[in-house]
């Protein structure tokens, strides 16, 4: 992603010259205050929005929902929006099977005939995310944490290579947030996923990511790498944990 500018109204830019480069298999975090442009950044990566200026490439393809080639790539890009986007009146299992739709032919999908192996796969993922026994619950009956597990399971059902998640744990209590993040971290390692997760809490990002970009008012103000306990500032090359900790403490205050 190089020098990307975006605007919703062609007057005010929401992102002003963001450049990011994310390697395959990274657990990447984007942190920033509310309104800093984090969600917009994710929508650019899955082609729901296109930049006003600058270029974005995922494996040499430009994200754009209306582009046939990219639409195919979307099949294996899991995207969990801030609002999760579950379908309220259908069951957990049905919500999760939606992730398998790209693998179905027209007749199977119109008749809701999911092949047996897809149903088995969905059940495997359901137990993986800790929802066993709740397959037949309607989505609107679930708790906040459970809804997030369903959204994650739907994304995993896509057999993703990239996972985009927008503030998936922001509204959860500390314990549940950690359970959910551990779940994603496990899946990320096992499936060698590229996880790109947006947070507004720096602490969570530092705990789980290998790399963290801090966004403020549409600019990237900091990008750090984490190896074990040491934190490296990529812009200055400094390895100064305390200083960086102080910086983000200011920048991510609500």
């Amino acid at each position: 992603m190089n020098d990307v500018w975006t605007s919703y109204d062609s007057k005010n830019f929401v992102l002003e010259g963001i450049s990011l480069s994310i390697d395959r298999g990274t657990n990447y975090a984007i942190v920033g205050q509310s309104g800093s442009g984090k969600s917009t950044l994710l929508k650019l990566m899955n082609g729901m929005m296109i930049p006003s200026k600058g270029t974005i490439k995922i494996d040499y393809v430009t994200p754009n929902m209306n582009n046939k080639k990219f639409k195919k790539m979307l099949h294996t890009i899991g995207y969990i929006p801030q609002s999760l986007g579950l379908i309220k009146n259908i069951t957990v299992l049905e919500n999760i099977l939606i992730g398998a739709l790209p693998r179905l032919n027209t007749i199977q999908s119109l008749l809701k005939r999911f092949p047996e192996h897809e149903i088995q796969e969905a059940k495997r993922i359901i137990s993986l995310v800790g929802l066993s026994g709740k397959e037949e619950r309607k989505a609107y009956m679930l708790s906040g944490g459970e809804k997030r597990r369903v959204a994650i399971a739907r994304a995993l059902m896509q057999k993703p290579t990239i996972l985009l998640a927008d503030e998936i744990v922001s509204e959860l209590d500390h314990v549940t947030a950690h359970e959910i993040m551990n779940l994603i971290a496990d899946a990320q390692k096992r499936m060698n996923l590229t996880a790109i997760m947006v947070h507004h809490d720096m602490q969570i990002a530092l705990e789980f990511a290998n790399r963290v970009a801090v966004i403020k008012e549409g600019h990237k103000i900091l990008e750090i790498g984490i190896e074990g306990d040491s934190i490296v500032d990529f812009q200055t090359g400094n390895i100064n944990t305390e200083e960086i900790m102080e910086m983000y403490a200011d920048d991510t205050k609500k």
């Binding site: 729901m48 929902m65 639409k71 790539m73 995207y79 959204a151």
Partner: peptide, 9 residues
Amino acid sequence: PVDAVSSIG
């Protein structure tokens, strides 16, 4: 949900 599912392609 429309956006979330459309973005599966």
